[in-house]
Amino acid sequence: MGSTLAQQIINVLQLGSIYALIALGYTMVYGIVRLINFAHGDFFMVGAYVAYAVFYAFNAYIGAGSPLAFLALAIAMIGGAAIAMLSNQLAYKPLRYKPKLSSLVTAIGVSMFLEYFFSAFPLIGPSQRGFPEILPKQMYTIFGAEISNYVILDLAVAATLMVGLTFLIQKTSLGRAMRAVSQDKDAAKLMGINVESIITATFLIGGAFAGAAGLLAGLTYPRIQPYMGILPGLKAFIAAVVGGIGNVPGAMLGAYILALADNINDTYISQFSNLLAFLILIAILLIRPTGILGEKTADKI
């Protein structure tokens, strides 16, 4: 690995894309139900395991390349969406109109449950697993930076998903309903919108994005374990807050800022890992608690 500027930029984009995919789910769920879903990082972990299971099942075809990768991507997204939807239905929905603290504590419970369940489950277990190489790895050199086809895949998938989500939220009737529900649930009901089904859709999308991030992270940082969601989840949460929680473009912006901070941190002050990320969080909370793009009147979705 070179350490040229170009190389650093690619590393930041790569990490930022994964943070962004996770942060989007955090921010969308917050926008729509004002819940900080601490289990969201674990949905990312579930996505990684689901993708791993797909590769395991199709062991014979490893190296077959992109068709398998896209199958795994689809199934990882379904896995992430499913676990997000289940968490909503079983844990969050019954507490929807109870004091906020109940669902916050419940979210921590869901998070711990997923981590311990995966650690204790015989087929999974607490130990690290190497993530298989599904594509023959190829390296390209651009402006003196080395970039693998895995990284290109990451960036392409993340960009596609983010553009797709922006389109969905801004231009489709589902997106319009999501924005309406995030702004005023009573008014949305009076328009005939089934608020619960829009909330479900939001969890599904957020979970699917976390699932996709799980696969991408598995491919590029090829180790997975049941606690792998904690740190990226925390970073993505900070990213969402930095960008303005509830704000979709804000989450993307925050994610790349956090990735840049991590990169600088690891390069120059590597003895205190994550220091910069937390300093940024504290600074934002002091200077601009609504986040960079967050405003009182902004779309909370």
Partner: peptide, 16 residues
């Protein structure tokens, strides 16, 4: 809906 446009506010009233 404060951050939906006037047009979107009307459009969404036709949800059902």
């Amino acid at each position: 809906f404060p951050t939906l446009t006037v047009y979107e506010n009307l459009e969404i009233a036709g949800w059902t």
